[in-house]
Design a binder for these strands. Structure first.
Lengths: 291, 291
DNA sequence: TTGATCAATCGGTAATACCGATCATTAGTA
DNA sequence: TACTAATGATCGGTATTACCGATTGATCAA
């Protein structure tokens, strides 16, 4: 039993005339007769009652017709869902992102869902390491982070933009009026920083060690949003990329001088893996946004 | 797109290993690869993500899988309903019958539905002519009647049994004690007969004319059940086949002498048309019952 | 009776499903 | 690191079969 035969059968059942059906299907009448017969042979049951030159459905044919139609419909629906996917009218885009890029992500999501409202977007926040693990098993489509993935055999990465690490303080903070701050000055203020394991934190620790300074870290948090809310109280400062604080008008970002503290934000894909259209389109929108 | 390809795809999606899937499907791995590729080409979309020797479903593949499964399931269900039909576990048997055969029909229906409870039985009572018209357009499967169908090119008929016409009276009727009655005596009694157009009535009129008698017909009815109920009041007599009164214990049947009044009950099929299994089985049960 | 119409059938051809062999790549192992 | 087993893609060849045109036999309408 093949869809081809079901298609022939359904059209024949609708027209109850093999010659017309054959024309309609752009095949010869002999082919149609043969294929119908083949279907009947397989089912071991007559589907049409040939009485004289008349053709009508048998009870079996009538019952079978429903299922044949449905089978064809389902196959067609499957084809359609693929077309929808191509036209970004279906599917789910799964994004992995570190908190530092949430501001960028949010604005792109707004733009994307406006253009393609039928595509669902699922964002998975986490540490770079966790996200890369999920990417490895294709649980997410790509990862937005500040970490350059180590394994270039598995991953494929592209730098989106660079963002300097800066001191982030509330507008009411004494430092808010300063234009910049030297790295050495960090030693004298109370800092709230991302928890150890966070990419930015580990990077910072490395910088602190190399410059032989050891700032006081009063608070550490494994949630960047909470961290920023803490800073917004005016009691703490933190060090994050400028991108992290974008969109929060009551925070000031002070460039840290005395050392190069640039971090590269990148998008990371699974190497050689199929990229769904929604993912490539979304990635392009991000790139445009940061230009 | 063919069911074959959907079958290959579904199994491959389940095992996520082309070699195993090919073995499972009893085809070579090369064939499987080719068929999957062909399906992907037709959809213009990758269904599997080949990463190294690993194979996993793409989003499109995952979405398509549901529809592929459903399509296969529907085709299979269609096959199953045909099997059910063969095993008399589905379908509807449509019987046309004249009232004179309702008693026989009832007992056969009881026996049939006991054996095949999943087969629906629809009985269409009517005049022989109406029923043969319905048979002609295959609205019913066969006709049970006392009429020999005229057109042997269209119909195919078989005699089931013969039933003599007899005078039917209530047990309280003066004639109830008689053993038989001569046709001439009919002239002197009040008769309730089937309406003109009813086969038995037309046959009777013919007999009356040939024997030059003209009985008094007080009542004529186009419903045999009503007619018999009328006879059961004791005020009228009627003439019907013995079979018509079977099952009604308060009625007596008096053979009519002086002339041969035998009627042949027959089953009539559409010539050369497909006969559904339920119909042939039911017909056989009727034949056994009248033996 | 005749001609038109319809489905079945036949023989031949083109398309293709299928196979085995081979290659390229990868994952696991010594 | 090198080796091996496993896996999917590809190639060339073969067997199958979907397809066609022509014909036949039957039916229906004029």
């Amino acid at each position: 039993m093949e869809l081809r035969q079901l298609k022939y059968f359904v059209r024949s059942a609708e027209l109850l005339n093999f010659t017309e059906a054959a024309n309609d299907l752009f095949i010869s009448q002999s082919t149609l007769s043969q294929q119908i017969k083949q279907l009947e042979d397989e089912l071991d049951m007559l589907l049409f009652d040939r009485v004289g030159k008349r053709v009508r459905l048998t009870e079996a044919g009538n019952l079978f017709l429903t299922y044949a139609r449905q089978s064809l419909q389902d196959a067609n629906d499957g084809k359609q869902i693929i077309e929808d996917l191509k036209g970004l009218k279906a599917g789910t885009l799964k994004i992995g992102a570190t908190y530092g890029l949430s501001a960028l992500l949010n604005s792109t999501i707004v733009a994307f869902t406006k253009l393609y409202p039928q595509v669902k977007v699922a964002v998975d926040f986490g540490t770079s390491e966790d996200l890369l693990e999920k990417l490895k098993i294709a649980e997410i489509d790509f990862v937005l982070s500040f970490l350059q993935p180590p394994d270039t055999n598995v991953f494929e990465s592209e730098i989106l933009f660079d963002s300097k690490l800066s001191l982030i303080v509330h507008t009411s903070h004494p430092f808010a009026s300063k234009k910049k701050i030297d790295i050495k000055e960090l030693q004298n203020i109370h800092l709230a920083l991302p928890a150890k394991g966070f990419n930015t934190r580990d990077f910072l620790e490395d910088v602190f060690a190399k410059n032989k300074i050891s700032p006081v870290v009063n608070v550490e948090l494994n949630d960047i949003n909470m961290l920023l809310q803490l800073v917004e109280t005016g009691n703490w400062c933190t060090v994050l990329t400028i991108a992290s604080a974008s969109g929060r008008t009551n925070l000031c970002t002070l460039p840290i001088t005395g050392i190069e503290l640039t971090r590269d934000a990148s998008i990371t894909w699974l190497k050689d893996a199929y990229r769904k259209k929604a993912a490539t389109v979304f990635a392009e929108m991000i790139k445009k946004q940061v230009k």
